[in-house]
């Protein structure tokens, strides 16, 4: 004779609280991405918001048969000025961080976000531009994106924000995502930008990319210590 189901009345109670306990309900706590995220997160082309290259992935860190991420779908050139942004991630001793990952989120050339929340229908969406990108750092701690220079977007009140790119920093040793921004040294309205103006003047430069001789906009992200990047409370 088989017993269909055990007697549920005699089950032991759960030994301790868990994810579904109503008494614990609240935001899921953040945890580090650790050092082994490269076959799980940064896809080929994740850092190329303009063309169809493999930028962003670290396929040197796992065998090719384990590449299960996106194969960057072909898309046409988005509108606007093509730019390259890059920089290093540095730790508290100035050493490059080779197991970090940078994400960007930005408006298109017209200053419109490809998001339902941005309902400014007077500004065009670009069918070839989402504005989200992801780049693992390389062995020298360098991240790099090819993208479009974003148009200005509105800020609190009637203050326009200068052209900027929102940045997330993730990595081994980072228990929480660090949020920062990239502005451009020649950006119109940087001096009036409502967010930059909340940053102590002597630390403002940590958010402002400068153009190198090769045309790349460069911004090092310093996690700790002298020259520490300004991170925002989010």
């Amino acid at each position: 004779m088989t017993i269909e189901r055990p007697d549920r009345a005699h089950r032991n109670p759960a030994p301790r609280q868990d994810n579904l306990d109503p008494a614990l309900f609240g935001q899921t706590p953040s945890q580090t991405v650790g050092p082994f995220f490269h076959y799980g997160l940064p896809w080929k082309g994740g850092a190329d918001l303009v063309g169809n290259s493999d930028m962003g992935a670290r396929t040197d860190l796992f065998p090719p048969e384990h590449y299960k991420l996106n194969l960057n779908p072909q898309h046409a050139l988005p509108l606007g000025e093509v730019i390259e942004i890059a920089g290093r991630v540095l730790d508290g001793e100035g050493a490059p961080v080779p197991d970090a990952m940078i994400e960007i989120w930005q408006a298109n050339a017209a200053g419109r976000y490809a998001s339902l929340v941005d309902d400014r229908t007077d500004l065009p969406l670009d069918p070839n531009f989402i504005g989200f990108g992801r780049s693992a750092t390389d062995a020298g701690g360098v991240w790099r994106f090819k993208t479009i220079r974003p148009g200005p977007v509105p800020g609190p009140g009637n203050s326009p924000q200068a052209s900027h790119i929102a940045i997330s920093v993730l990595g081994r040793g980072l228990l929480k995502r660090l949020a920062t921004r990239l502005y451009f040294a020649d950006g119109q309205g940087n001096d009036l930008d409502p967010i930059l103006n909340l940053v102590p003047a002597e630390r403002r430069h940590t958010l402002i990319a400068t153009r190198q001789d090769d045309g790349v906009w460069w911004l090092d992200i310093v996690l700790q210590g002298p020259g520490e990047t300004v991170f925002f409370d989010l």
């Binding site: 989120w105 977007v153 609190p156 300004v230 991170f231 989010l234």
Partner: peptide, 28 residues
């Protein structure tokens, strides 16, 4: 957790108002 020692910012994160840049994100 030793990897946090040189990778955690010394400054407190700066409180700023959320703008369109923070309340939007890719969708669909």
């Amino acid at each position: 957790y030793r990897s946090t020692l040189l990778r955690s910012p010394h400054h407190r994160p700066l409180a700023v108002p959320q703008t369109l840049s923070e309340v939007t994100g890719p969708a669909d």
